Simulated assay, not measured.
Amino acid sequence: MNLVLWIFTGLLATALLVSTVKAFLPREKIAATGPAAEWILDFSPGALRTIAGLEFLAAIGLILPAALDIAPILVPITATCVALLFVGATTVRLRRGERKTAVGDLVYLAIAIFIAIGRFGPWAFTS
C-alpha cells in the first residue's frame, strides 16, 4: 500500500505542478482553450497567481518532506490542504454549472483524501 500511496502522491503532485501554468499565461489565452477553462476569467490575475503559488507549494509539500525525511508529517497535512483546495475548485465548477468538469476535481479530491488518510493512519511515515 505504501507504493500505491507514493504513486498517487506523485500523480497528484504532477497535476498540481502542471496546473501552475495559470500564473505564467494570460487568462484570456487559457480561457480560449475551451469551456472547461472559462472559470479562469472569474478570478483576477493576482488571485490566479496566489492559487498557482499554493498549488506549487502543495506539489513540493507532498513529495519533499517524505523524500528528504525532514518533517514527513507535512505530507498528510499538505494532502488535507489540497483536499480543501479541491473542495473550493469543485464548488466553483458547480456554481458555474460545469458538472462534467467538476468530476475531475472530485477525482483529485478523492486522491488527496486517500493520501491524507493513508499517511495519517496505517501507512504514516514513522521516524
Rank of each mutant, 00 (worst) to 15 (best):
F43P: 04
F24G: 03
L12G: 00
G97A: 11
F86P: 01
I115Q: 02
A23F: 02
T33Q: 15
R49P: 02
P35M: 11
K100Y: 08
A13F: 03
P72K: 13
P26A: 09
I73C: 08
E38M: 05
G53E: 00
L17R: 03
I111M: 13
E55Y: 05
A66F: 07
L57I: 14
V18S: 05
A37Y: 15
L3A: 15
A58E: 01
V18R: 11
D105C: 13
V4Y: 07
T33W: 13
A124M: 10
A36W: 05
F114Y: 14
P35G: 08
L109Y: 08
E98S: 06
K22N: 11
A59M: 07
G97Q: 14
T14V: 08
V82I: 11
R93N: 02
P45I: 11
G10C: 06
T80A: 15
V75K: 02
W123N: 05
V18T: 02
A32H: 07
R49V: 12
L11C: 09
A66P: 03
A32D: 08
D42G: 10
T126L: 15
V21Q: 13
I77Y: 05
P26W: 08
V21H: 10
T80P: 04
I113E: 06
T90Y: 01
L16P: 00
T80K: 02
F56P: 03
G104Q: 08
T91G: 07
K29L: 15
V4W: 10
G34K: 04
I77W: 06
F43Y: 13
I7M: 06
T33V: 05
L54P: 00
L106C: 10
A67D: 00
L64E: 09
D105F: 13
L54M: 07
A31P: 11
I70H: 07
G53W: 03
A52S: 12
G104Y: 03
S19M: 04
G118W: 05
P76I: 03
A67E: 09
A102T: 12
F86L: 12
G46C: 13
I51F: 10
F24L: 12
V107C: 02
V103L: 09
P72N: 10
G104V: 05
A124C: 07
P122C: 08
T20A: 13
L68Y: 14
A110L: 13
A15W: 08
W123V: 07
P122I: 14
F125Q: 04
T80N: 02
R119A: 01
R99H: 13
L17A: 15
I115N: 06
I60G: 04
V92M: 05
